[in-house]
Design a protein around this nucleic acid. Sequence first.
DNA 1: CGATTTTGACCTGCGC
DNA 2: GCGCAGGTCAAAATCG
Length: 311
Amino acid sequence: MERNEVIKMEETIGSSLFSDHISEGYPFSGIFDFSEGEKNSLGFVELLGIQDYSPSLFDSPQAPSMAPSAPLPATTVKEYCSEVLNQPATPNSSSISSASSEAVNDEQTKAVDQEGEQQEKAKKQLKPKKTNQKRQREPRFAFMTKSEVDHLEDGYRWRKYGQKAVKNSPYPRSYYRCTTASCNVKKRVERSFTDPSIVVTTYEGKHSHPSPVMPRHSLAGVPPGSGISAGYAAASFDMPMARTLSYCQQLRQPSFINTSSPSNFASDGLILNPSGLRRDIRFCTPGSAFLRDHGLLQDIVPSHMLKEEDQ
DNA sequence: CGATTTTGACCTGCGC
DNA sequence: GCGCAGGTCAAAATCG
């Protein structure tokens, strides 16, 4: 990528990423690179690319495939395409399924006591047989982060509730749930099998509470070099995701979010071109235009840096 | 001892 | 209908 292209993008991002052209509810993904931040001991993350999982983009059968630089399994892509939209307002699985998950094969049943049998019966009865309604899911957005560690600190507390091997990948996918009661946010963490240095973190849902670890608007206390994780960015991003999408729209093809033309998205070199994904958007070095509009970025940027920007 | 992680089993959706 | 793969549960193990 040409240097002047980089500059151009920085400018574009600086002016539009945090613009007010906010469309709520668009999930997206971002690719962050910690290297700059660590290098500069400022906790910056470098956004290498972004991707949009807006449902409108995927309601076509020919959903675009992910970027090969950090691809998600095909099945995952499919999932984004088909499930992004439809979660019930209060999805709550933990209590519901605990009942059904034990239901079981005969041998196990023999081993359990009477109470267990009763539970099993109850489960079978409860088993909600699917109707036409598709299972609904919270909007999702994913970050692709260059990181050594799989589980990035993001300011929220998570409890791991599962891990699965991913087909065609030597790296397992981990499932986490926000530990805060009444908060149903989940996240999945997996490592890209084509580029193991990249961690794909997918958030589902929206936190109904502030970060218990790092108060918003105050990250100045983050230890230098520790880096602000992309995860934190994502988790605190109620909005930036939409803002980032906004940036995409302005930067390239405004039409790509048009429901009626998902193919635009698929053919967009910036967003989907595999080889171009990480190259095409590279910005956010300290002092870049990225910081100009404080938007919610102030959440992840030490306050003194913002002051510098103002000068 | 409570919180968290691990892990095997089960549930669900989808493609064939 | 069957098999596969993703997602979730929950008991057991581990950790602080």
